[in-house]
């Protein structure tokens, strides 16, 4: 294993993580809810009334964060390498997988691990393993065909 020191950014990663934690903790502190993005997204369509309102408001916050960035410090770099076909397949898998698996990086990886949930630890290890194996296959077996 070689470390990519050029791109390694420990301080901004820790700071960004802390801000994510402030938001995830803050949602429980204020609304009593888990900040699981996939669950909130799906819930926008399956709930009504007040249950829908807070979810839509949260997603609007996510959507306007880059607008705020653009108006102030500028947008961060977002380099998308995947082809449109890969994006569609990946999107479908993430949509299906996060519903069957009851959560994603935020719900299981951050909130679940912060609750010391064994179920979320299993979920996190599984999706991480899925990601590691897939990238290994794409880059080192198929040679970055996508």
């Amino acid at each position: 294993m070689t470390i990519d020191w050029l791109h390694f950014s420990p301080w901004t990663s820790l700071l960004g993580g802390a801000l994510i934690g402030l938001a995830a903790g803050g949602l429980m502190f204020s609304l009593g809810r888990i900040a699981g993005i996939s669950g909130i997204l799906a819930g926008m369509f399956s709930t009504t009334g007040n249950e829908r309102v807070w979810r839509v408001a949260f997603v609007l916050g996510l959507l306007t964060a880059p607008v705020l960035a653009r108006l102030t410090v500028g947008l961060p770099v977002m380099t998308f390498e995947a082809s449109p076909t890969t994006l569609v397949v990946a999107g479908l898998l993430v949509g299906l997988g996060t519903r069957y698996g009851f959560g994603c990086t935020s719900g299981h990886g951050i909130c679940g691990l912060s609750r010391l949930s064994a179920r979320s630890l299993a979920a996190t290890l599984l999706f991480m393993a899925g990601g590691f194996v897939t990238v290994y296959g794409m880059r080192h077996v198929l040679g970055g065909a996508a």
């Binding site: 996510l62 960035a69 999107g91 898998l93 993430v94 994603c104 999706f127 794409m138």
Partner: peptide, 26 residues
């Protein structure tokens, strides 16, 4: 099953649900 599926999708494009929505906003 779900989390393995999610992991494969995450590995294919490098995008999970939160960043996808921020990307849309951008």
């Amino acid at each position: 099953f779900g989390n393995v599926l999610f992991g494969v999708g995450w590995g294919l494009a490098g995008i999970c649900p939160g960043p996808a929505i921020v990307g849309v906003g951008a």
